[in-house]
Design a protein around this nucleic acid. Structure first.
Lengths: 138, 138
DNA sequence: TACCGATTGAAAACCGTTCTCAAAACACTT
DNA sequence: AAGTGTTTTGAGAACGGTTTTCAATCGGTA
């Protein structure tokens, strides 16, 4: 964790009013420390923290991702029933899901154009539209 | 289970070369017996079978849905990390997901027009595109 | 009817996730 | 710095949906 990534992580937490504990700053800097967007699972983030030598318990990784989600810092993406993905890019955008290795990446938002959307049925409104482009290696 | 729904269920299984055991015909007739499309979870189908008086073990419901999926009779839809949904409509089409009661229904396919789709990255091809319209009751 | 691979189902295993709760960290006052 | 009340952490247990195990049973075939 470089000083810069640490600062970015802290600022990110502060911007959402999330208390910057040691563990949260560690995870935050792993998530946004380099200014890039990232897609993680609890397990992958847990492993990343361990590699950094900044061990954080798995329970805390789960709690923290949930907290970041509630604070609007990350977005949960449902693509594979078996585990949850979290995306630091909270703008509305499509995803590529690589079926071969269960990896999730962003798809370019400007290359997806939805010209017409089914209207919400009576008594309901559209909360969001999830678009997942499933990829298979050729 | 009426004679007609029984026949429809059996025919459906036969069309995919799936051996029509008593349990499978029961579940098949619950799924396509009235010629309508249906969205079920293992649990909901299990309950439906019990109500019919045609008890099938939960393990068999799981195995059977998996088998139907492999045979291309139903499609798994991932909308809610916590459980799996299966859809008897295997054509490419969007879904409404009712967040309030975790219900899944079809959205009219002809009212969704995707004018432009991100190209698959090098070394990959698009397997499918999942569109889930999340609804919130007003 | 006899055979043999496929299917069933009760129970156990599995696995990602959440919960519990005591200890530690933190913010805030004095 | 010490005291006080709140929040967070983390080891382990619990949970819930799903899959696996394996012996009994079924279904298709000769």
């Amino acid at each position: 964790m470089t000083p810069l990534s640490h600062t970015r992580g802290s600022d990110w937490l502060e911007s959402a009013g999330v208390r910057p504990t040691r563990q949260r700053v560690t995870l935050a800097s792993l998530l946004v420390g380099d200014g890039q967007h990232r897609h993680v699972t609890a397990e992958s983030l847990f492993e990343a923290a361990k590699l950094e030598g900044e061990a954080v318990s798995l329970a805390t990784v789960y709690n923290t991702l949930r907290a970041f989600c509630d604070a609007g810092l990350v977005q949960e993406v449902t693509v594979d029933g078996s585990k949850s993905y979290f995306d630091t890019n909270t703008h509305d955008h499509p995803h590529f899901y690589w079926e071969d290795n269960a990896e999730l990446t962003d798809a370019p938002a400007d290359e997806l154009v939805i010209a017409k959307v089914p209207e919400a049925p009576e008594g309901a409104e559209i909360a969001s539209i999830d678009v997942v482009i499933r990829l298979r290696r050729t």
